[in-house]
């Protein structure tokens, strides 16, 4: 067991984190503006929309939630929204598991605090920057997460005000930014065909699950099967 260290947030790490998410910001901002605009259409107040972006800070789950938003609340409606949010965010469970070795040098308090900021983009940054930063320096993670959080919150507020001004983010492929960036990150994760066997398992299970359910739970099933396959493949 490692002895817990104090959190190191180096200025160079912070800069690295902010710089590494700049490419993603146009997509995040456009996504945030459209979230704000849709939220306004669904009847959320500006305070509600901003609070959701600030506290939930999970784009896909927020979109799913406001698409099921209600003007006259029922228990069933409220519970359904929480279940949907849990399903869409289930991938974060696995991302958190994979952060254990990285954060294990930290005391529990800072580690659980940092996990509150975890998103697809900041997680993928951690994977990408693995080895480029000092072990135990979480500056890059904090920089990336803070830039994403501020951008997401401001874009939500702007979108709520602007309403329908941004008509079609799809036209500029802004809805695909995250997927294409993830695909690029996959390339350096490639460590030969043998190590990629779990990917094939993940791929098959994710596609099968996607074809039978319409929800994003396929991410959970695919990733979990891939990890299990990886665990049971002999060295």
């Amino acid at each position: 067991m490692n002895t817990p260290r104090s959190v190191v947030i180096s200025p160079s790490g912070l800069r690295l984190g902010v710089a590494s998410v700049i490419a993603l910001l146009p997509g995040v901002l456009a996504f945030g503006v459209s979230f704000g605009a849709v939220a306004a259409k669904m009847g959320l107040s500006l305070v509600d929309a901003a609070m959701m972006s600030g506290l939930v800070f999970a784009g896909a789950a927020q979109f799913v939630a406001i698409s099921a938003w209600q003007m006259d609340w029922t228990w069933a409606g409220a519970i359904t929204i929480c279940l949907l949010v849990g399903i869409v965010n289930s991938r974060l469970i696995l991302m958190g598991a994979s952060l254990r070795p990285t954060f294990s040098a930290l005391a529990p308090g800072p580690a659980y605090g940092l996990l509150a900021l975890n998103t697809d983009a900041s997680w993928i940054m951690m994977m990408r920057l693995e080895g480029k930063t000092e072990h135990g320096d979480v500056g890059a993670y904090v920089g990336a997460a803070a830039a994403l959080w501020a951008g997401w919150l401001l874009a939500t507020i702007a979108g709520w005000w602007l309403g329908a001004l941004i008509s079609d983010p799809r036209r500029y492929a802004l809805d695909l930014v995250m997927i294409i960036f993830f695909a690029c990150i996959l390339v350096p994760l490639w460590k030969g065909p043998r190590k990629a066997l779990p990917w094939l398992v993940a791929l098959a299970v994710a596609l099968i699950t996607q074809s039978v359910t319409s929800s994003q739970i396929y991410i959970l099933f695919g990733s979990l099967s891939g990890a299990i396959a990886g665990a049971f493949l002999d060295e």
Binding site: A183, W199, L203, A206
Partner: peptide, 8 residues
């Protein structure tokens, strides 16, 4: 194996 599996 998890990061690659999540991304795929």
């Amino acid at each position: 194996a998890l990061p690659g599996a999540v991304v795929v």
